[in-house]
């Protein structure tokens, strides 16, 4: 039988990998993919825990997680598209409009 902890380890691995993708890759699409991986890690946690306690709540939570992911991804993708359209790049490093510039002074 698969102990809960194993499932959780796998979930944690997935989550960590997703996090690594986000931290290391510079391409917006890769970052989004990393995000997906992280979400799935979380979903795995929820399901494993739900099964462990034989409870439907884990699955319900995952369903909602899926919904949220879908909504998030739809908006994120359109934003990526907009960014690409406006700035002609999908490199995260090039998107530094929020960078504070001390020389400009306070607004």
């Amino acid at each position: 039988m698969i102990p809960l902890s194993h499932s959780l380890i796998i979930a944690a691995l997935l989550f960590t990998l997703g996090l690594l993708i986000i931290m290391l890759r510079r391409e917006l699409l890769f970052i989004l993919m990393g995000l997906e991986v992280m979400f799935n890690g979380a979903a795995l946690t929820a399901i494993a825990a739900g099964q462990y306690w034989t409870n439907a709540d884990g699955q319900v939570l995952t369903i909602f997680l899926t919904v949220v992911t879908a909504a998030e991804l739809a908006i994120a993708l359109i934003l990526v598209w907009l960014v690409f359209e406006r700035l002609n790049t999908t490199r995260a490093d090039n998107l530094k409009l929020l960078k504070d510039n001390i020389d400009r002074g306070p607004p």
């Binding site: 990998l17 690594l20 993708i21 290391l24 890769f30 991986v37």
Partner: peptide
């Protein structure tokens, strides 16, 4: 895990 790692 491998597939996820490959994305990296």
């Amino acid at each position: 895990v491998l597939a996820a790692g490959s994305i990296l």
